[in-house]
Design a binder for these strands. Structure first.
Length: 474
DNA sequence: TGAAATGTTGGGGCG
DNA sequence: ACGCCCCAACATTTC
């Protein structure tokens, strides 16, 4: 083949990129393209911060391609139309891309495949985003796993392929006559300046974050990951996974190398992180095999739950004004940074669904509107897990107590103090339940709790009982 | 990748 | 010395 278009989506890197490497090795001329898609940019669950971050990723990708003699073509429009146009412009023989498992992406790619077929252009997609996809890991009965632990066992038994070689230097340049938009700055794109500071974007940043984490922090990950006040406790790789500024195979290869050079005592901690990476694969696979989860509960009986929380309560949750310090600190952190520690995601998700009795779908959408790392599979899986209606879900009667969770995982109250300045001077014994000291509460100007946890817990149990679902195993 | 209610046990104060 | 009660502390059950 002569000219092959590589269509970038969530694989914005030049190393360990399956389809991109295939395009380079099979073709004489690679035309790398990214298409700004209004169906994504104007969707109800789009986050301004995520778009701004992605523009940074694209600019970094453009430079990385340029360093290898490639020119990134940026287009704005409907993917199947733009790809047909570009195929004509460059006289492409083929379009390659890496697979994406979201329902919107699957429908979009089907349209692209049809349009390219009619235009006489070969289209091929590759597995890249995950190690094992769709139906590559099945139970003995030939069905996809819906419980994590046996899935992870089968996953580990299969081994991990090595990284794909980095993109080579351009053999033939893309003709100057082929038009490309400049990569917009975030203020161009958003019409305003984003107030928040975004983490470094791009492939170099991703590899650096990975390197820092694997240098030593991973060796204490098993315990450090539970304490949100410890900013080095987790890998902080999620935005890089989201946009593909790290390659999944690269991450595993480097993790295994770190494990093999470390004392055996840290094996366990490395395993715990590996398990988190497998959770990511698990939810990708769930979304691919059970696409109804994008809209509804994995277990259909829970679609009948009668959520009774109010809009005012939802607004208080979003704004971090519920009167429960660990919840409010977490939400304010999300709003300010576009990120949230995983422990806190569980706490605020449990609180929205089981204390405020508001549907997980509303929380899921709000997370998507804020998170830099927001993507359907992981976000949806986490929310359904918390709500107790998903695959391998927490049983519905497992209800976090926001006070004891705060005391357990933020014992000094340092995370709360950082994001809830009203409680900066509260003593550790009271910081997770300031209402116990009315004088302190009044002086702090911090809101009183908007619900009574014990009462809401009872209401939640009654709400779940009303749908008469079989009790999941504990 | 819980929490709360309920049940059981055992030490110590006390008559 | 002994039984009784109280109540942590821990275990089990239930949601």
């Amino acid at each position: 083949m002569q000219t092959i278009i590589h269509w970038f989506r969530r694989d914005l890197r030049v190393s360990d990129n399956t389809a991109l490497h295939e395009a380079w090795s099979r073709g004489n001329c690679v035309v790398p393209v990214f298409i700004l898609d209004d169906a994504i940019l104007q969707a109800a669950d789009c986050a301004a911060a995520r778009v701004a971050y992605q523009l940074g990723v694209l600019e970094s990708l453009r430079k990385n391609l340029e360093a290898l003699g490639h020119r990134l073509i940026l287009r704005h429009g409907t993917p199947h139309e733009e790809l047909v146009k570009l195929s004509r412009d460059v006289k492409a023989d083929a379009v390659f891309t890496n697979r994406d498992y979201e329902p919107y992406a699957i429908a979009r790619d089907r349209k692209v495949a049809g349009a390219l077929y009619e235009a006489g252009v070969y289209f091929e997609s590759f597995k890249d985003h995950v190690i094992w996809e769709n139906r590559e890991i099945l139970t003995k009965a030939g069905e996809p796993y819906t419980v994590f632990t046996p899935y992870s066992r089968a996953w580990r038994a299969k081994g991990v392929p090595p990284p794909v070689p980095k993109l080579g230097r351009a053999k033939t340049p893309v003709p100057e006559s082929v038009k490309s938009l400049p990569v917009p700055t975030s203020s161009d794109a958003l019409g305003h300046r984003l107030r928040q500071q975004l983490p470094d974007a791009g492939e170099h940043a991703g590899l650096e974050v990975l390197k820092q984490f694997l240098a030593d922090r991973v060796y204490r990950y098993d315990t450090s990951r539970n304490f949100p006040a410890d900013e080095a406790g987790t890998s902080r790789l999620s935005p890089h996974f989201r946009f593909g500024t790290v390659g999944t195979r690269t991450v595993f290869a480097k993790l295994f190398a770190a494990r093999d050079t470390a004392p055996p005592a840290s094996d366990a901690a490395c395993q715990v992180w590996e398990t988190e990476l497998i959770w990511r694969e698990f939810y990708q696979q769930i979304l691919a095999n059970y696409p109804h989860v994008a809209e509804r509960c994995f277990r259909p009986e829970y679609d009948d739950l009668k959520w009774s929380g109010t809009d005012a309560q939802f607004d208080a949750w979003c704004a971090g004004q519920t009167g429960f310090p660990i919840v409010d600190a977490a939400m304010r952190c999300l709003n300010a940074t576009g990120g949230m520690h995983n422990r806190l995601r569980m706490i605020v998700a449990m609180f929205l669904t089981k204390d405020l009795l508001i549907s997980w779908q509303r929380g899921e959408r709000y997370f998507m509107q804020q998170l830099l790392d927001g993507e359907l599979a992981a976000n949806n899986g986490g929310w359904q897990w918390s709500a107790g209606c998903g695959t391998d879900a927490a049983p519905y009667f497992r209800i976090f107590n926001p006070v004891s969770q705060g005391e357990k995982f933020d014992p000094e109250g340092n995370f709360v103090r950082k994001w809830v300045p009203e409680l900066r001077d509260a003593p550790a014994e009271l910081i997770h339940q300031p209402w116990e000291n009315p004088l302190l509460l009044a002086r702090s100007k911090y809101p009183a709790p908007i619900v009574d946890h014990a009462r809401q817990r009872e209401r939640c149990l009654a709400m779940f009982k009303a749908v008469k679902a079989p009790t999941p195993k504990a």
